[in-house]
Design a protein around this nucleic acid. Structure first.
Length: 271
DNA sequence: TCCCAGGCTGCTT
DNA sequence: AAGCAGCATGGG
């Protein structure tokens, strides 16, 4: 199946640390969409999708393909620090992840690296994922809630094990709490997300951005802190709070998108 | 061996 | 409010 897409960069999108369940083989990426297997590949002719999950409407939604990125590009091109540098990442888009998966995965992400998070994702899926259709998806909160700390530690979670366990049990017992976050504005949603254990400012912003599409969210991790200091603060030491407020004031509702370009640009050495 | 990774928690000033 | 050690684990 082939999709006509403009301003979409599959590789940058799937390799910019948003999502942890895709596996790359050469030029193609295999993973799950709505619990169904799908394999993506992109060349100059377009985006190709194969598998049970290859459904155009779901793909367009997941990759946010119907968003006009012109306003984001205009802001970056009008920004002295970014003009002439961001273009190589054109087409990088924010994925609309399942909110529970984003909540769980970014609890696991703290003081961790992408490779290891991907490994933990796989371990959790093989142990708790309830096979539905073709794939073995990220396990539901209910599936993890029946586990115990020791097993989660064996799967590589380390000290994050009790955080995920508590959160899984809470979500399983309060099925509407995620909807409440979705319906709330950024400020209130953040307060709610910050109540979960193992979640601070940075992880909360990741969850809100990737799992709840709160585009004002601007997660400040070590990479963002470094690149923001370099580009906007003359390499002086700045607090994460100050960086976040600076970005949100400067870019408003596009802060989240621009953060993704900054993060991937910093990690790949483009910025 | 030490350092780092999409940081957070709890304790101390 | 701000600073800081400790935390599990694996890769460079």
């Amino acid at each position: 199946m082939k999709l006509r897409v403009s301003d979409f960069n599959l590789e940058a999108t799937l390799e910019s640390g948003q999502v942890f369940g895709f596996n790359r083989r050469d030029k193609s990426f295999s993973g799950l969409l709505g619990g169904k297997k799908v394999e993506f590949r992109q060349d100059s002719g377009g985006l190709y999708a194969e598998g049970e999950g290859a459904e155009e409407k779901a793909i367009r939604h997941y990759f946010d393909l119907d968003r006009d990125l012109t306003p984001v590009y205009r802001k970056m091109s009008g920004d002295e620090a970014l003009a002439g540098k961001w273009e190589k990442l054109r087409g990088l888009r924010l994925i609309r992840q399942d909110s529970w998966e984003a909540l769980a995965c970014f609890i696991l992400s703290s003081n961790n690296n992408v490779k290891r998070i991907q490994g933990i994702w796989k371990n959790l899926s093989t142990h708790f994922g309830e096979r539905a259709g073709s794939g073995l998806p990220f396990p539901a909160a209910r599936a993890i809630s029946g586990s115990h700390e020791k097993l989660l530690r064996m799967l590589g979670l380390g000290y994050r094990a009790p955080f995920l366990l508590y959160t899984a049990r809470f979500v399983a017992n309060n099925p509407f709490c995620l909807e409440a976050i979705r319906e709330a504005d950024y400020e209130e949603a953040k307060e709610r997300v910050l109540c979960f254990p193992g979640i601070g400012e940075k992880v909360a912003d990741c969850v809100l951005l990737y799992g709840f599409q709160k585009y004002e969210a601007f997660p400040v991790d070590v990479w963002i802190l470094r690149i923001m200091r370099k580009l906007y603060f003359r390499n002086r030491s700045v607090s994460e709070d100050k960086v976040r407020r600076f970005a949100q004031k400067r870019w408003g509702a596009d802060a989240g998108y621009i953060q993704q370009y900054l993060f991937h640009g910093a990690r790949t050495g483009l910025l």
